[in-house]
Design a protein around this nucleic acid. Structure first.
Lengths: 148, 148
DNA sequence: TCCTAATTGATATGAGACATAGCAATGTTG
DNA sequence: CAACATTGCTATGTCTCATATCAATTAGGA
């Protein structure tokens, strides 16, 4: 007997799909990280770039893009923004490319970002106490690299 | 001894972050599904909607949105598109809402989408032969629901 | 019943992540 | 040198997601 006036919850045959779960999980973590990084006034991509430049001083824009899966064209406003805010410095190496490095202000921000990201990850790790994280990461890595 | 002219690969302290792995894994699956669904001329969201309407005939637009985490405003062009292509039918229930159902053409498409999604998931399941998928899904679910 | 509040679909709009195409300057290589 | 590749950049378009606002309709409380 179906009550015609009660169906607030839909039957959802999608909810158990791996791709859907991944998308939701990713969105949740992204939103959480975005909120946490709001304290530094940076977005997740920007924080990631600071960390990457910190670990690879002197790297150039297109290398960063390759490492992050971001196209050259889309790196331009990101780097320009971080440079304009005095987080990054450019010094020419080529006639076409610049070596990127953190300014003092950038290094300070990088350290804060690193701490925030650690706390952020730790928060979710707490949720996953009963999960083999090594295996989880391995599984995600397999999926990310797909069948090539 | 660092060779000054070899650093094509950056040291990437981000690659092991859970959030980053999730984002990459999700993007890979999304791209794969998008390609697979290209055969039906539908995008992942649209295929999902057809499946959801098929499982819940008579549901209304805002219920779909709630089930999928899509805002009302963004449901409008989606439903309009699927209706214009004769996949969906609207019949007024309220003065404000419509009961959605699949047209014959929509049901046919839904069946194809279902098959494609199964094959798509199976392809990735093959990659994860050594992984406890029950636990993987549980972990993703935990992350997706976050700390609320 | 009447007034207020909530719901629904819709519009307009903007941000952000991604893609492609093309360009000018520069480097690299046969 | 000539052909090609790389780099940063501009312009542009798509897709997803968000907010604010609106009109019509419905529901609920005084």
């Amino acid at each position: 007997m179906e009550k015609p006036n009660a169906p607030k919850e839909l039957h959802d045959p999608i909810a158990s799909r791996l791709g859907y779960l991944l998308r939701r999980a990713s969105a949740t973590m992204m939103a959480d990280l975005g909120e946490a990084l709001g304290a530094v006034g940076l977005r997740p991509v920007e924080g990631t770039i600071l960390i990457l430049v910190g670990a690879n001083p002197g790297c150039i824009q297109s290398e960063l893009g390759r490492a992050l899966g971001i196209k050259r064209a889309n790196m331009v406003p990101l780097i320009a923004g971080l440079t304009a805010q005095n987080y990054l410095e450019k010094s020419p190496v080529d006639g076409r490319s610049f070596a990127l490095s953190l300014t003092p202000r950038g290094e300070e921000a990088r350290a804060r970002v690193d701490g925030i990201m650690d706390a952020h990850e730790a928060g979710f790790a707490r949720l996953l106490a009963d999960v083999d994280q090594q295996q989880l990461r391995a599984a995600l890595s397999l999926i990310a690299n797909g069948r090539e």
